[in-house]
Amino acid sequence: MDDLIRGIIQAFEIIFSLNPALYEVIWLSLSVSGIALVFSTVLGIPLGAAMALTRFPGRQLMTALLYTGMGFPPVVIGLFVYLMLSRSGPAGQLGWLFTPKAMIVAQTIISFPLVAGFTMAAVMGVDPHLRRQLMSLGATPWQATVTILLEAKIGVIVAIVAGFGAIISEVGAVMLVGGNIEGKTRVLTTAIVLETQKGNFDLAIALGLVLLLLSFLVNVALLRLQGKAFS
């Protein structure tokens, strides 16, 4: 208990010490997860919407795959990406292993099914008669789709938040494919693991608090966005 209280006090000291190494880790966490989120959003929202709004052969199989993907252990995805990018793997020539690129690839694969799956659920939650009514008012299929997505925006924002939450807090995959290289691929979660293993609980708690704070701020920002979209 003492460890925890002392840790929290020291944690705040460390956060406000403006230590460049700490901010480097924070920045890398945000940029890697941010870029991965952009990719998974760009891919996931259209796929989720398409799967909710259209009927095509193999759709059920796709849905099953997507739901499986949503619950897939991130570390297994990390392993897969590792094997792909390994020197002896099919994409080894890229030289991406142990770089932020590999982490972005892994995080995109982790968050993409979440974004697509939650988007699909959200869009399916919109009144199925809406599309016909929008078409009747003169919407093109594309305009109708956009309107439906906007109707589902709370769910779509939840999808994006869920995707972000999954990857900013993920440790196994980024450790595997990023390698936790100081100043290069070390992010908040891997730094927490490292500091805990070193016995630096104070610093680990500080990093944990930063991670919590970041998730909180990002969620608040997205929810505000949602509020704006309402009015």
């Binding site: 009514q133 009747s136 003169g138 309107t147 906007l150």
Partner: peptide, 10 residues
């Protein structure tokens, strides 16, 4: 255009 029996409003 159609006004449906159960209109869905945005």
């Amino acid at each position: 255009t159609t006004v449906f029996q159960n209109p869905v409003l945005l």
